[in-house]
Amino acid sequence: MASLPHPIQYQGSKRNLASEILRFLPNKVERLVEPFAGTAAISIAASARHIYQIFWINDLNKPLVELLKLIVEKPNEIADSYTHIWYEQQSNVEHYYQVREKFNTTNDPSLFLYLLARCVKGAVRYNSVGLFNQSPDKRRKGTQPEKMRKNIEGVSRLLKGKCIFTSWDYRDVLAEVRKNDFIYIDPPYQGVCGNRNSRYYSGIKFNDFVLAIEELNRKQIAFAVSYDGKRGNKIFGNELPTALSLKKIEIEVGRSSQATLLGKEEVTVESLYLSPTMVNSYVENLESFSTHNLNSLVF
């Protein structure tokens, strides 16, 4: 897949995996729903491939959803705002902390874009009362305004006029989905998140999540779930129960940069679970994969 626009730096984004994930998704569905949209990487990639024409982008992190909505619907406004904030910083790192304090008071999404572009590793962190508390990356100033504008305009071209934006609890979203929807579910990564973790605005309970998946199965909704994973011999999180009758695919992400620095040859693998309805309805897509991909299927 050609390079896609990506204005928001966000640790945990599926941007680099989007092309691989899309290989397993159906292309005969009216609407793509992302209950845990994050940066909406899958929606952006799916629109670029003309797979879907309607997108429901949801995330409990309301400032993030409002930022995405601005990027899609008012690209010039958010690009101008980012440019103004970016040039204000000059070489003064205190500027970042001032913007962060203002964001925590106002939840202004235009301030959030600057913080995400400038913070360490694009990694969101929240304190115990839900305030953004990640530090600035002192080695760089964040995405150059010209590049940011180009990325914002690119996302807007792909998604404008095609999206519903909400910041609901994921269970409320799943309760509203229809049979002609496809649901891509990418909850907070199990390996680092329980019910509350500094890396995420909010966590989820494993048992609640399993019940929600059971209900989707009962309604015969087509969906895929990115959930657990591993790096080398280290496993992150529990697998989803076999009683859900999901097909598990292991996708190689690549060598771990952290492991490489330590002189280890560890490959990171993420799991993608396909719903029974999806496999039954789109089995021809699975059968068309290469032997290498089929060998990665876990039944």
Rank of each mutant, 00 (worst) to 15 (best):
N76A: 15
N76P: 09
E77I: 00
E77R: 15
I78Q: 03
I78V: 14
A79N: 02
A79S: 15
A79M: 02
A79R: 00
D80C: 08
D80F: 03
D80Q: 06
S81H: 11
S81T: 06
S81L: 11
S81N: 09
Y82S: 01
Y82G: 06
Y82M: 08
Y82T: 01
T83S: 12
T83A: 13
T83C: 07
T83D: 13
T83L: 09
T83H: 13
T83P: 11
T83I: 06
T83F: 10
T83Q: 12
H84N: 11
H84P: 12
H84M: 11
H84Q: 11
H84K: 07
W86G: 03
W86R: 06
W86V: 09
W86K: 02
W86M: 08
Y87A: 01
Y87H: 11
E88M: 12
E88G: 15
E88P: 06
E88W: 13
Q89W: 02
Q89M: 15
Q89T: 05
Q89R: 09
Q89K: 10
Q89N: 04
Q90A: 03
Q90K: 05
Q90G: 01
S91C: 07
S91N: 11
S91A: 12
S91M: 08
S91T: 12
N92P: 05
N92F: 04
N92K: 04
N92S: 10
V93K: 05
V93I: 11
V93A: 05
V93G: 03
V93L: 11
V93Y: 14
E94T: 03
E94G: 00
E94S: 00
H95T: 14
H95Q: 12
H95R: 14
H95A: 15
Y96P: 08
Y96K: 07
Y96V: 08
Y96T: 02
Y96I: 10
Y97L: 09
Y97I: 05
Y97G: 05
Y97E: 08
Q98F: 08
Q98E: 06
Q98C: 01
Q98A: 00
Q98M: 06
V99N: 02
V99Q: 04
V99D: 02
R100E: 00
R100A: 01
R100I: 02
R100M: 03
E101W: 14
E101L: 13
E101G: 11
K102W: 11
K102M: 04
K102H: 10
K102E: 15
K102S: 14
K102A: 12
F103E: 04
F103L: 03
F103R: 00
F103Y: 06
F103D: 01
F103N: 02
N104V: 10
N104Q: 07
N104T: 09
N104L: 06
N104P: 13
T105Y: 05
T105C: 10
T105V: 12
T105S: 15
T105E: 13
T105I: 14
T105W: 01
T105G: 10
T106K: 10
T106S: 15
T106G: 12
T106W: 10
T106V: 13
T106P: 12
N107L: 14
N107F: 15
N107W: 07
N107V: 05
N107P: 13
D108T: 04
D108R: 07
D108C: 05
D108H: 10
P109G: 03
P109M: 02
P109L: 07
P109C: 04
P109N: 04
S110E: 09
S110H: 10
S110K: 13
S110N: 10
